[in-house]
Simulated scan of single mutants.
Amino acid sequence: MQWSILIKLFIANFKGKVTIKSNYKYLQYILKENLLSATRTGEWIDVGGFPLPLTGDEFTITHKGTTWLFKRVDNFITRIIAYAALIISFLTFLFK
């Protein structure tokens, strides 16, 4: 799990969109896993006589991205609670 991917998904989830440059290290992974989808700029180009919509640097989160995000967050929160309980148990054992 990369923290930068998690941060991008958080921003996309709470703001509605996130700006990611084309040279971002994990962009291909994010698009391959369908976690984010590119928004269209409204401009078109002709490729072989057929119009093709252009996409910009802004992305919106998909349903799969939201599921992936909250699955990781739930796992992280569970681990924090478990470690806190372990530390509290150890401290009560030491100072009893």
Score class of each variant (00 low, 15 high):
Phe93Lys: 13
Phe76Asp: 03
Leu86Arg: 07
Ala85Val: 06
Pro53Gly: 03
Phe90Ala: 13
Ile87Met: 08
Tyr83Cys: 10
Asn34His: 05
Thr60Gly: 05
Leu36Lys: 06
Thr55Val: 11
Leu52Trp: 05
Ala84Phe: 04
Thr78Arg: 12
Lys71Trp: 05
Ala12Tyr: 03
Val47Gln: 12
Asp46Phe: 05
Lys17Asp: 11
Gly49Leu: 09
Ile5Phe: 09
Val73Cys: 03
Ile7Asn: 12
Leu69Cys: 04
Leu36Arg: 09
Leu54Val: 08
Thr78Ala: 14
Phe59Asp: 11
Ile20Ala: 04
Lys17Val: 05
Tyr29Asp: 08
Met1Glu: 08
Ile77Gln: 14
Lys21Trp: 13
Glu43Ser: 15
Glu58Leu: 13
Thr39Phe: 05
Phe59Gln: 09
Leu52Gly: 00
Gly16Arg: 07
Gly49His: 01
Asn34Lys: 10
Leu9His: 08
Val73Phe: 03
Leu9Cys: 06
Thr60Arg: 09
Ile11Ser: 01
Gly42Met: 08
Phe95Lys: 14
Ala84Pro: 01
Ile81Gly: 03
Gln2Ile: 06
Lys15Pro: 00
Lys32Gly: 09
Asp46Lys: 09
Arg79Val: 04
Pro51Asn: 04
Ile45Val: 15
Ile5Asp: 11
Lys32Tyr: 11
Tyr83Thr: 07
Lys96Gly: 11
Gly48Cys: 04
Thr66Cys: 04
Ala38Leu: 03
Val47Asn: 10
Ala38Lys: 12
Glu43Tyr: 10
Phe93Val: 13
Pro51Glu: 10
Thr39Trp: 01
Tyr83Phe: 15
Phe50Gln: 11
Ile5Gly: 09
Trp3Arg: 15
Trp3Gly: 10
Ile61Ser: 07
Leu6Pro: 00
Phe95Asn: 14
Arg72Asn: 12
Ile61Trp: 06
Val73Ile: 14
Ile77Leu: 15
Leu86Cys: 02
Thr19Gly: 03
Lys8Val: 13
Leu94Lys: 15
Ile61Tyr: 07
Leu69Pro: 07
Phe10Trp: 02
Tyr26Ile: 03
Leu52Pro: 00
Ser22Leu: 01
Ile87Gln: 06
Phe50Tyr: 09
Glu58Phe: 14
Ala38Met: 04
Val18Cys: 03
Phe14Tyr: 08
Ile81Ser: 13
Thr41Pro: 06
Leu54Gly: 01
Ser37Pro: 00
Asn13Arg: 08
Leu36Ala: 06
Ser37Arg: 02
Leu86Met: 10
Lys21Val: 15
Lys71Ser: 11
Asp46Trp: 03
Glu33Asp: 11
Glu58Tyr: 14
Ala84Glu: 12
Asn34Gly: 02
Trp44Met: 10
Thr78Val: 12
Leu52Phe: 12
Thr67Gly: 03
Asp74Gln: 09
Lys32Leu: 14
Leu27Glu: 02
Asn75Pro: 00
Thr19Lys: 15
Phe76Gly: 01
Lys64Ile: 01
Leu6His: 00
Phe95Cys: 08
Thr60Ile: 15
Trp68Leu: 01
Thr62Lys: 08
Arg72Met: 07
Thr39Met: 14
Thr60Ser: 10
Leu35Trp: 15
Thr78His: 08
Trp68Ser: 04
Ser4Gly: 04
Asn23Leu: 02
Val73Glu: 02
